[in-house]
Design a protein around this nucleic acid. Structure first.
Length: 718
DNA sequence: AGCACGCCGACT
DNA sequence: GTCGGCGTGCTC
């Protein structure tokens, strides 16, 4: 299916049109390639392979090519492929002084290749300096970075900035430890709970490259199961890489790896470590001293030797999306790695994203699931509280908490801690059917219907006015804005149970664990502490806030967050109960009750295919001022199948926000920007990225003042 | 992006 | 003649 095609044609063998054009041009111009590079009044050059191909470390797209430099004799030994170099670069003030060319700034780069001769017809400048003889950019990493740049219409230099950590001389001086021999093949352990669990481990241990989408059972065993998969891969003599969404998850996997493998066999790569320690760990991996890595998203590029397995945990968490250009997603990067290195792939989660379901649907990966009785055995009981219950229950309505919920909390507090999940502030209210709460969508392109200041309705994607909306599901003509507001509920809850301590975990202050004693634990999604022996009960409040957004991911996100909280609750047989405040007829609510995130994702996938949504189609967002965007859309040569939606105006950033850091892709404060979406059918993702990249490159080269931002797989469509 | 080169108008 | 306007194009 689509994703496979895209991975195929964005691979190393497929050169982009502008690259081809460049190559053709260079070949034409240099009629007779010189046997030896001619420098400015030749200083002594390396005898063997006197040309260094250099990637200049500038993110600008039209410089996204290699440049040749001459290798002076004294740098010959150090100037090996993969090392960091400094070169003079820029058309500026070329003066020839003492037989050497000067001027142009000194700029960092990577030496990519040593060659006998150059395609470049002109005289070569010499390498100014080898920053360090440590080879940091290997062939595989370079190939990966190239694929990622192509996939995301970004520059190679930008990707390398994400992939290669900044240098620390002190870290380089420290020798890395001696590598340990491969460990023994681990026991299957709790993997036997899954139908293909033991077989998956065996395949890894025997050097195979199985690819699986793993729907993990609720509970704390997942990190040990991950560690066993890593151990099995190491036992086969290969390396393994695990990417998790945050530092807490990384710490859990780190602990599990230590207990399964012992000390010294794996590295922990997280931002928390600080630059020097982090580079030291990275170097230990790169040098082959350490064969296994766990880390947060930057670790997706970790240069693991002889990679046998890549793992991503909880791919639906948005921290897997890199914030820096070109904003690659860890799942997509690991997919590229699995394809490039022909290694095993494991995507694990308590929940299931549409993208994960697609990997199974297309046949690229196999499902790794537990049999239904095992799921029922492990999951808590889930009860729902909808509007009907609230309406019937006048007293509860005032407190925003129905009787069922009170009872569950009260009963739970007799046995242990009770988790209360409240939504974070700041959800954008959007329009939904007042009757059945289905998000209101545009009839033409299925984008989200938004309320304007004047009260008019308009599509957030194509900008069409919506004057006669009615709900396609239930026929209602009434719309409502979704409202958020919940923190108070938790406070009231605390007052209602005065004898019980209330602990909170949220953005500013995240608790890692809580003891098994009775307590109310109030948390925002993603910050839920793990309870010793599991929570006795959980209360998931204000489902509307999560479901109300007609964001593509609204239902999936809500389900993922509920499941993430509910997975910390004891199994039903131990009395574990979850109450979710949401209409029981809604699809994600039903999926939670049945504990069937995979079924939910499969149905969402079918719907996305029907509506032409990602990941079945591929989308890109292009934004800029009205003029800049119009000009860009006028010049870009999109593949014929491409469909342009919009442009529509983006909300103006208040000028008061000037001091604060802006989200990447957001317009500068006070400027009116527009955004268009471009979508292409399955298999044309690479062509779309290439077209956008070359249009962007042409634009930058022209230096036409106003910027245009291009974002592949925009996360916030709708 | 910088920064020079180039090919046209008013100036010592 | 030449100083300098910034349009155009290159950076190994």
């Amino acid at each position: 299916m689509s994703s496979e095609n895209d991975r195929g044609d964005s691979g190393a063998e497929g050169a982009l049109p502008e690259q081809l054009a460049f190559i053709r041009e260079t070949v034409r111009r240099s009629k007779a390639p010189r046997a030896k590079p001619r420098t400015w009044r030749g200083a002594a050059l390396a005898k063997d392979l006197p040309v260094a191909r250099v990637l200049v470390d500038k993110g600008v797209l039209h410089l996204d090519r290699y440049f040749d430099y001459a290798v002076p004799e004294e740098l010959d030994a150090d100037a090996q492929p993969g090392v960091r170099v400094r070169v003079r670069f820029g058309a500026g003030r070329h003066r020839v002084r003492d037989g050497r060319r000067e001027g142009g700034g000194l700029i960092d780069g990577f030496l990519v290749e040593r060659r006998a001769e150059s395609d470049y017809a002109g005289p070569l400048a010499a390498l100014a300096q080898v920053v360090s003889p440590e080879p940091v950019l290997g062939e595989e990493l370079l190939r990966l970075a190239r694929s990622v740049a192509d996939r995301y219409a970004g520059s190679l230099a930008d990707v390398l900035q994400l992939a290669v950590p900044p240098r620390s001389a002190r870290a380089e001086q420290r020798p890395s430890p001696e590598p340990l021999p491969p460990p023994a093949v681990p026991e299957a352990g709790s993997w036997t709970r899954y139908e293909q669990g033991a077989a998956f481990l065996e395949a890894l241990a025997s050097g195979g490259a199985p690819r699986a989408v793993w729907n993990a059972l609720p509970g704390p065993e997942w990190s040990t199961e991950l560690a066993r998969a890593v151990a099995a891969t190491l036992a086969s003599g290969r390396g393994a890489l695990v990417v998790v969404p945050d530092g807490r998850a990384a710490a859990r996997v780190d602990a599990a790896l230590t207990s399964v493998l012992g000390e010294g066999r794996h590295a922990l790569l997280t931002a928390e470590a600080g630059p020097e320690k982090r580079y030291r760990e990275w170097l230990a991996v790169r040098r082959g001293s350490v064969r296994a890595v766990v880390g947060t998203r930057a670790a997706m590029f970790a240069p693991v030797r002889d990679l046998g397995l890549v793992v991503i945990w909880d791919d639906g968490d948005d921290s897997h999306s890199e914030q820096h250009a070109p904003q690659p997603h860890a799942r997509e990067v690991l997919l590229l790695r699995a394809a490039q290195d022909k290694c095993a792939f494991l995507l694990g989660s308590w929940s299931c994203t549409v993208e994960a379901a697609q990997l199974v649907e297309s046949g690229w990966a196999r499902p790794l699931v537990a049999p239904r009785p095992q799921v029922r055995e492990t999951a808590p009981l889930v009860r729902t509280v909808g509007d009907q219950d609230l309406a019937r229950d006048e007293a509860a309505r005032a407190a925003r908490l129905p009787t069922v919920a009170w009872q569950v909390v009260r009963d739970g507090l007799r046995d242990g801690p009770v988790l209360v999940q409240v939504p974070r502030r700041g959800y954008v209210p959007r329009m939904a059917c007042a009757n059945c709460r289905a998000p209101a969508r545009c009839r033409h392109c299925a984008g989200p219907v938004e309320a304007q200041d004047a009260g008019a309705l308009r599509c957030g994607w194509c900008g069409r006015e919506e004057s006669s909306w009615h709900c396609p599901d239930c026929g209602s003509f009434r719309l409502r804005a979704q409202v958020v507001g919940a923190r108070r509920t938790a406070e009231e809850l605390g007052r209602a149970f005065p004898a019980v301590p209330v602990r909170t975990s949220g953005r500013e202050h995240v608790l890692d664990t809580v003891p098994g004693a009775p307590a109310l634990v109030v948390s925002t999604p993603g910050a839920e502490p793990v309870a010793e022996n599991g929570y006795a009960a959980a209360l998931l409040l204000d489902g509307w806030a999560m479901l109300g957004r007609p964001d593509l991911h609204a239902a999936e996100d809500a389900l993922r967050r509920w499941i993430a909280a509910a997975a910390l609750v004891r199994p039903q047989r131990e009395g574990g109960t979850v109450v979710v405040a949401a209409e029981p007829t809604l699809r994600p609510v039903q999926a939670l009750v049945r504990w069937d995130p995979v079924g939910h994702a499969v149905r969402e996938l079918a719907e996305r295919a029907e509506l032409g949504f990602p990941p079945v189609s591929r989308m890109a967002a292009v934004s800029g001022t009205v003029e800049a965007l119009a000009e860009f859309l006028g010049t870009v040569e999109l593949p014929p199948e491409a469909e342009v939606l919009g442009p529509v105006p983006l909300p103006v950033t208040p000028a008061a926000a000037a001091g604060r850091p802006r989200r990447p892709g957001a317009p500068p404060p006070g400027e009116q920007w527009e955004r268009a979406l471009v979508r292409v059918p399955p298999g044309r993702g690479a062509a779309l990225a290439a077209a956008l990249k070359s249009a962007q490159a042409a634009r930058m080269a022209r230096g036409s003042g106003q910027p245009v931002r291009v974002r592949i797989d925009p996360p916030d469509i709708g």
